Simulated assay, not measured.
Amino acid sequence: MAFKKLNPFERLYLKNTNKDAYQNYKYQLKVSKIPSINFLDTPKPLVDFKHSGHLGDIIYAIPTMYALAENGKARLHLNIGQKIKVDGEHPLQGIGLNEKSILMLEPLLTHQQQFQQIDIYDKQEIDYDLDVFRKFPFDYSKGHISRWYFNCFAVNYDLSKPWLTIPKDNSMADKIVIARSTRYNSPVIDYSILKKYNNLVFVGLPEEYALMKAVIPHLVYVEVSNFFELAKIIAGAKLFIGNQSFPYAIAEALKTPRMLESYYKSPNVIPEGPNAFEFSFQPQFEFLVQKLILQH
């Protein structure tokens, strides 16, 4: 169906006479600006992707990369220093990726069988620009990050199954691993209820740990040198508890027994598959902690 752009007077008239039609027009206008995607007619043995971050977005984009590459290998070119607008605090302060984040990520992704190469984007020829999802008129405060990519690239993947494989850190077998970024903190969730458990470790940034240690004094911090090590810890955990953050994205990709603190302003991470639970309120949080610790 052809889209007709209205002149200023037509837009004003429509706005004042038919609000629903005006909302539809604004949406159609946004859709008309979406860049075209060159879908591959036949599978290639090696498919090149570009992504500019954030780290969690990259993890949630992996199922789409697998689906687009089909039985072929994938090369991922990561574009550093690109500005990305975010709500609230973010460790990289307005950019998607830097060189350090790529060095941290590379050991994790190159361990995956389908990834042949991870490098810095330097105008290499690519088959799919994964950043295009930011040009689509999604409501980014809601929904499901992985499914935004599905919607852009016309693919599907079974998100109830793991899409990362990592050897477990067996020293974590009896540990509850916690990660809570300073972004997406629910004001009605109190982690001090975990004080009665002794097998607690924290992964994340030192400043995030300091905030959580003030609530749980005996909490132990585990520092990692890269995200492969982080993933091994999460894979080996008895239970993972976290908010909408990069460590949770890894837990979701691994299908570790997990609990997600869902943020009421931006519930755009959806747990899928077995051993996946989410909580938005304190009584449910406390019930799930007790139930899952007994189970596992």
Rank of each mutant, 00 (worst) to 15 (best):
E207R: 15
Q290P: 05
I62G: 00
R11W: 05
M172Q: 09
V203H: 02
I126W: 05
A249T: 01
F133V: 04
T256R: 01
N18Q: 04
D129A: 09
P43V: 07
Y13W: 11
K196A: 09
F153W: 07
L109R: 01
V132G: 02
P206W: 06
F281P: 01
C152G: 05
Y140D: 14
G81E: 02
K161A: 10
S262D: 04
L46N: 06
T256H: 06
N79T: 08
L164E: 00
I34L: 13
N198A: 04
A173Q: 10
K123L: 12
R75D: 01
H51C: 09
F39L: 15
P257Y: 07
I59K: 00
N7H: 14
A179Y: 00
A249P: 00
Q113W: 05
V188E: 15
H296P: 01
L219H: 07
L108H: 05
F133P: 00
F227R: 00
I120W: 07
D127K: 03
K15M: 11
F228C: 05
K44C: 01
Q295T: 12
H144D: 14
Y128P: 00
D48Y: 08
P271G: 09
I233L: 12
K15F: 13
V215P: 04
E99Q: 13
S101T: 13
S266D: 15
N199E: 13
L288N: 06
V86R: 14
A249R: 00
H111N: 14
I126K: 06
K142Q: 15
Q23V: 04
N7Y: 09
A231N: 07
L239H: 12
W148N: 12
F153P: 03
F279K: 04
H90N: 15
S52K: 04
R180N: 12
I250A: 01
L97E: 02
A210T: 10
V201K: 02
A253G: 04
P8F: 08
K4Q: 14
F240W: 10
N199I: 09
I37L: 13
G56N: 12
P257D: 12
A276F: 02
G96Q: 03
H218Y: 02
P206A: 09
F240L: 03
P247A: 06
L29G: 02
A67P: 04
I178H: 01
V222Y: 11
L288D: 07
D87M: 09
I189W: 07
G143M: 11
L29P: 02
A2E: 13
Y60K: 01
I34Y: 12
P187E: 15
L254C: 06
Y221W: 15
P91K: 04
V47W: 00
D131F: 07
V224E: 05
E70W: 02
P217H: 14
Y121F: 14
N98D: 11
E229W: 02
L109N: 03
M172W: 01
V47I: 08
L194E: 01
M65T: 08
T182D: 07
Q113K: 14
L294A: 11
G96H: 02
T110L: 15
P257V: 11
E125M: 06
V188Y: 07
S245F: 01
V188S: 13
P167C: 10
D127L: 03
V201Y: 09
Q28T: 04
H54L: 12
A173T: 09
F228H: 09
K73S: 04
F115H: 07
K85Q: 14
K232Y: 03
